[in-house]
């Protein structure tokens, strides 16, 4: 029982991180129909920026995270306005390839600047923990869950109640009509990329938290959030959160309980198995909407 509670706690913490990463994919996809494969590289950059600011520059951890989030948001805006806008109207495939290429370049750049070694991100929690009823709660994971919940609440309030949230949803539904009724479509796209930057920074921080660190291949781990996106539905923020949770918990439970015959890395493929099973039953994901057919 204690073991299950322990694993569930870790699963929820991992799932919370995946939810953030998945939401980063969804925010951009919803507005522009582009699967942003640079999201994992942005995450990597976010973690390294925090590491550089907090460890090398000696800025306190919280302001370092905030500053990195702002920088990455600006970077996202710059990439959207400077690159993607110029190829707007091209096949989505072209845009997707651009994000893929930009992501690869970004990862190479980070590695060239910071080297291939692991880097601490300067978080104040390290291995400190609190024990509750025999379950060890690492502070870094408690904070992960808390910050992610706060970020998700803020995001959903923004999406549901603010005028830009409404503008994003309108643009997602019909960009031409949105423009015709006065939605600043360009600004909407920039906002979604800024959001993606902030989400990537937070995701990167928690993915690089103890017992991990910032390292050049952490983007691969981030890509494991991708089944969460597919699972939830590419255009559904709620789906991203639920999908992220499911994938995180499945991964941790598989690591804890899967019989040895399945191999040591079964936990890494378990999320993809879940994704395939869900897609067999619901091709548009758990929360994805079937495209509306107009006759």
């Amino acid at each position: 029982m204690t073991e299950l509670a322990q694993l569930l706690f870790q699963g929820v913490a991992l799932g919370a991180t995946y939810s953030l990463i998945a939401l980063g994919f969804v925010v951009v996809f919803r507005a522009s129909k582009v699967v942003n494969f640079a999201q994992t590289a942005m995450l990597l950059l976010g973690a390294y920026l925090v590491s550089w600011l907090a460890v090398d520059q000696g800025i306190a951890f919280a302001p370092a995270v905030l500053l990195a989030a702002v920088l990455l948001a600006l970077g996202g805006i710059g990439f959207q306005a400077g690159v993607l806008r110029r190829v707007a109207g091209q096949e989505p495939f072209v845009l997707v390839m651009i994000t893929l290429g930009a992501g690869i370049a970004l990862i190479a750049l980070v590695e060239a600047v910071f080297g291939p070694e692991q880097r601490p991100i300067g978080d104040p929690w390290a291995a400190s923990a609190v024990s509750v009823g025999g379950v060890t709660l690492l502070w870094v994971k408690v904070w992960t869950i808390g910050v992610v919940v706060a970020a998700l609440v803020a995001y959903f309030a923004f999406d549901r109640f603010s005028r830009y949230g409404l503008a994003i949803r309108a643009t997602a539904a019909d960009e031409e009509a949105a423009g015709a009724v006065g939605v600043p479509v360009r600004r909407v796209h920039m906002i979604t990329w800024a959001l993606a930057g902030v989400l990537a920074t937070l995701g990167g921080v928690f993915l690089a938290g103890f017992p991990n660190a910032a390292h050049p291949t952490m983007g691969d781990a981030a890509l494991r959030a991708f089944p969460a996106v597919i699972l939830g539905g590419l255009e559904s923020p709620i789906g991203a959160v639920v999908g992220g949770m499911v994938i995180g918990i499945v991964e941790v439970l598989a690591a804890g309980y899967a019989p040895a015959e399945l191999g040591a890395n079964f936990h890494a493929i378990a999320p993809y198995l879940v994704m395939m099973l869900v897609l067999l039953v619901r091709p548009y994901g758990l929360f994805g909407a079937r495209p509306v057919e107009r006759l």
Partner: peptide, 24 residues
Amino acid sequence: GLFGHLTALENVLVGRHHLMRAGV
């Protein structure tokens, strides 16, 4: 040119975006 998943009220509200002043 309506936004299918949005409610009627939200659809109408979008039309007032250019009249709103609050920043992002």
